[in-house]
Design a binder for these strands. Structure first.
Lengths: 234, 234
DNA sequence: CGAATAATTGAAAAAGATCAACGTGAGTGG
DNA sequence: CCACTCACGTTGATCTTTTTCAATTATTCG
């Protein structure tokens, strides 16, 4: 299992993309809303490879990922399944318009979640309009992730899809060591393939091909040193 | 050009997916917000094949599609472009978190838009919290469309992608005649190909293949009779 | 250690892309 | 009205990429 020597965490008060913010800034404005959410949320820890919620279950809770990583799976009627997204700390997930979850959420590593009852959030949102703003921002983040996913899938070759994936994934500070340039893959070849729309054999072969061309260097199956200069070139 | 003998329109008071709704229902609750939006919006008509906004431009306006259809294009740095979505009446679009539009919006046919200044909507949202709810619902609709797009692109063959596209598109009452089973394609083969991640030659060949297998019958390049029974089968 | 899972590799088949040529149909100007 | 043009669509031949099916090697976990 992948260990996190220095866990990279996000709290509701230290959310995604928040930097230094002065009072009166959009981020600061939401502080009260975040505190209110903090109060109704309960902490939840889950080990790696566990189901947080399953597609079709009643969508009674929404979640905030404080540390770790999540994979969102969508199952088709014919049994095939695909990976819709990988989630990193700071992301809300499970925010559904409908009564049931439209996809499943699986932990990739040990995770620390904040668990919020949907009805409680809805009630609270009446007093704190910024909560709705926060959810809107999160939906926007999800939509941008989906757009980037579509762009990746539309790449003409499996090689460029995989390179695009590695470059996007290497933005995660917890899994990419800037000094050694080593990327720790917390998902399987099959997960990557199911995300990019290819078979896992093809994904495996492309890794091989990238190594022969010195784009990457495999330390082991889950640790890969990236030659960023080469990967960013074409 | 494709004519719409009986234009299919949506107003802010007759939005997407709204059916009969009683006072006190979520839809009815938003009536005041919609009226307020109606007041600050101005009507805008555009002919077919016109730019509503271009990727990179200042995102000063958000739009509501009252009638017609829109194509959302994303241009990559390398010059390649892809179709992110097709929009139908009742959809808001151009709601950006950032200062500039992340993609372009092009009319496919003559359209009737409601045009709203972003700053005015933001101001109004302070008095009408339901406006933020409305935008959140619209983001959810956009995210679900993106999810369906990803599912389509992940299909293993070009044939199943195209069948999935035809079945989804045939849900648009303005372009699918339920009695004759004729679908009017308002987008080119290239648009479809750029949406599904294939070349337009492949899209053309699959149309041919579907005709030989009696899945479809071409009336002309833009009018196709669907054999729903066959298309839904596999 | 040993079983189960994940990853790699090979060979053959299928699917799709590419490049090139040819139709078709709507709009234009003589 | 008719030829012309231009964008769009179709089709063919060839080449490349990816999948499929099968076998083998690694790794992980109890």
């Amino acid at each position: 299992m992948v260990t996190n020597p220095v866990p990279y965490t996000r709290s509701l008060h230290n959310p995604e993309h928040s930097g230094h913010h002065t009072p009166g800034s959009p981020h600061a404005r939401m502080a009260a809303a975040r505190t209110a959410l903090e109060r109704i949320g309960c902490d939840l820890k889950k080990p790696a490879k566990n189901v947080v919620f399953r597609q079709g279950e009643n969508a009674d809770f929404i979640y905030f990922l404080q540390s770790g990583a999540i994979r969102l799976d969508y199952q088709l009627e014919n049994g095939r399944s695909l990976v819709l997204d990988f989630l990193w700390p700071g992301r809300f997930f499970g925010i559904m318009e409908d009564a049931v979850y439209a996809w499943s959420a699986i932990t990739l590593v040990d995770v620390h979640l904040k668990c919020l009852r949907r009805s409680a959030v809805q009630t609270l949102a009446r007093n704190y309009p910024d909560i709705t703003d926060l959810l809107l921002k999160q939906k926007t983040a999800a939509l941008m992730a989906a757009k980037n996913h579509i762009v990746l899938m539309s790449h003409p070759t499996a090689t460029s899809k995989l390179i695009g994936f590695l470059l996007a994934y290497s933005k995660q500070p917890e899994y990419f060591n800037q000094t050694t340039q080593v990327l720790t893959l917390i998902m399987s070849r099959k997960d990557i393939a199911d995300y990019l729309g290819m078979t896992f054999e093809t994904a495996s072969r492309i890794f091989k091909y990238l190594e022969t061309r010195n784009y990457i260097k495999k330390i082991n199956h889950r640790q890969i040193q990236l030659n960023m200069h080469m990967l960013r070139k074409p």
